[in-house]
Design a protein around this nucleic acid. Sequence first.
DNA 1: TCCAGACCCTAGAACAGTTCCAAGCCCGGA
DNA 2: TCCGGGCTTGGAACTGTTCTAGGGTCTGGA
Lengths: 134, 134
Amino acid sequence: MTPLIDRLRSRDDWRLTAQRRVIAEVMTGQHVHLAAHEVLERARAILPEVSQATVYNTLNELVALGELVELTHADGRKRYDPNVGERHHHLVCVDCGTMRDVDADDPSLAAAQHHGFDVLSVEVTFRARCPDCA
Amino acid sequence: MTPLIDRLRSRDDWRLTAQRRVIAEVMTGQHVHLAAHEVLERARAILPEVSQATVYNTLNELVALGELVELTHADGRKRYDPNVGERHHHLVCVDCGTMRDVDADDPSLAAAQHHGFDVLSVEVTFRARCPDCA
DNA sequence: TCCAGACCCTAGAACAGTTCCAAGCCCGGA
DNA sequence: TCCGGGCTTGGAACTGTTCTAGGGTCTGGA
């Protein structure tokens, strides 16, 4: 039993059905940054009758519950990261899209964190609320 | 005549047609981060017979030429930033998507750079090439 | 145990953003 | 003027995501 599934099971405002449990199982681990279609594939390997709509619904619900973070990838498809607890950032391969979590507090990445990647550029985005929307 | 249009005009591998000039005109300025449909709208205000396909083609070509940077926004649509010269990062409103350029070298944003925004979180992405793709 | 209501799941349709395609247009060079 | 290559166009196609309608499942109360 993983912490994620434990947390979900103990919520009384959210039913942990078989489908949802399988999706949570798939989303468990370090360096997991799956796109929806990959989640669907892996979930179906465990429970073949999971539907696409359920995967999308469940992923969105888990994001709303704060259990996943949605990442927008350059290829246009969203990826989901279960590592919400600790502050961390991302190392992304510009060719294949592979991602690694890195914990860096500044935009210069320590060599020990390179994971063998050849770093090309850094992109910093500040998520904020503008005066008009405040 | 703006520097961007000047640069484009002087390329001999790329014809600066009326449509392309209008699109470049629309993309000129500071804090310009337009999505394709906005570029189309504004371009048509100047030259009504510009087609959607041309806007997409031209934006992609300008990105390939290094004259624009493509930004992936959480809402799924790409935005284009003409500010390619100087290293800078982005301040994004989570509600309306408004963006501002900021020049920050670390993930703590100086108050002078806040543009009145209420900063919620910082996201750092290292663009890299993984060992398999190298 | 049975029932009702709430919640959940499914397949397929619908949607939005982007790209592809075939055809016609335009410009520069011969 | 004619020709060829590149550019543009509208519409179709494609892809990722969301919506919809209908049926199923679970839970608590009678």
